[in-house]
Computed example of a mutant assay.
Amino acid sequence: MTDAGMSWRNESLGARVRVALWLRDEVGEGGVFSKASIREAVKGTEQVDRRMRDLRPADWSILTYRDKPSLQPDQLYLEKIGLPIWEPEYRAAGLRQISAKTRRYVYERDGHMCRRCGVAAGEEYADEPGTRARLTLGHVRPHQSGSGANSEDLITECARCNETVKHLTGVQMTKEQVWDRIKELPGRGKRDLLVWMKADCRPLSAAEKAWGMYRQLPAAVREELEGDLETLMRR
């Protein structure tokens, strides 16, 4: 199939290719669109948003309202069309395949906890009652095009932090606000924080690692362990 004959309406094409073609043909560089419009165009495809994000490592630049203040919260801006991933030679451009073995190793290495906010799998967010964490893998340097898929390139993140980091949203705090919080820490806290800053990660304690492992167990088994620990602590 030639480039000229390719269409985002062709359902036999992969979702990533269809999304790229839709952006090329219906939006164009400098165009504004919404997630709703792309979901409507590429119907019946799971995780269309993720397929769109998968274009970024292939040198596509798609901005959100946090990157471009003139946009509305539901709008996106196609700043640059990158590699033509609809062409066979570019089809895998930017894709980073993570093996099951590597995925399992990273989760175990990180104690089945988000290394950015510390939440464990299935744990309820303190600031979002009723919403429970789902773990995924992110890249240590998420905005570096072509980041590797080796364990040293990966970090366990909850889905919320993963999305936040990809779009550089974060908590909208100033340097001064963070510095004020740091200055309030006791001496030990400041020393620990400096170590974490230099290592660019927060080491997990033995209790935190056990907590992450505990969260992986079925609910009935967790209840048994809770009772076992209570019994042990009363001895």
Rank of each mutant, 00 (worst) to 15 (best):
M1K: 12
T2R: 12
D3P: 00
A4T: 13
G5V: 08
M6I: 07
S7I: 08
W8T: 05
W8F: 13
R9V: 02
N10M: 05
E11R: 15
G14W: 03
R16K: 13
W22M: 06
L23Q: 01
R24H: 09
G28W: 01
V32H: 01
V32K: 03
K35W: 15
S37Y: 00
S37W: 01
S37M: 09
I38P: 02
R39V: 09
K43T: 15
G44C: 10
T45Q: 12
E46V: 12
R50Q: 14
R50D: 11
R53T: 11
D54Y: 06
R56I: 14
P57W: 04
A58Y: 02
A58G: 03
W60F: 08
L63G: 00
T64C: 03
K68E: 14
P69S: 15
P73V: 05
D74G: 09
L76S: 04
Y77H: 12
L78Q: 03
E79I: 03
E79Q: 14
K80D: 01
G82K: 02
G82D: 03
W86T: 08
Y90S: 09
Y90C: 12
R91Y: 11
A92W: 11
L95C: 09
S99L: 03
A100P: 09
A100W: 02
K101A: 14
K101N: 07
R103S: 11
E108W: 03
H112V: 03
C114I: 01
R115G: 01
R115C: 02
A120T: 10
A121G: 12
G122R: 05
G122T: 07
E123G: 04
Y125S: 02
D127V: 10
E128S: 10
E128H: 09
P129L: 00
G130E: 03
G130C: 06
T131N: 03
A133P: 04
A133I: 06
R134Y: 07
R134L: 12
L135Y: 01
L135S: 08
T136H: 06
T136R: 04
L137W: 01
G138K: 04
H139S: 02
S145N: 12
G146C: 10
S147I: 11
N150S: 13
S151C: 07
D153Y: 06
L154H: 05
I155M: 11
T156L: 05
A159W: 06
A159E: 11
A159F: 09
C161L: 05
N162W: 08
E163S: 14
K166E: 14
K166V: 10
K166P: 01
L168P: 00
L168A: 10
G170N: 08
V171Q: 10
V171F: 08
T174P: 13
T174C: 01
K175P: 02
E176S: 04
Q177L: 04
Q177W: 08
V178E: 09
V178Q: 12
W179T: 10
W179S: 08
D180P: 00
D180S: 06
R181V: 07
R188K: 13
R191N: 02
D192F: 12
D192G: 04
K198L: 15
D200N: 14
C201D: 05
P203R: 04
L204N: 04
A207E: 15
A207C: 08
K209A: 01
W211R: 15
W211S: 13
W211E: 15
M213A: 15
A219Q: 13
V221A: 10
R222P: 00
E226I: 10
G227M: 11
D228A: 14
E230G: 10
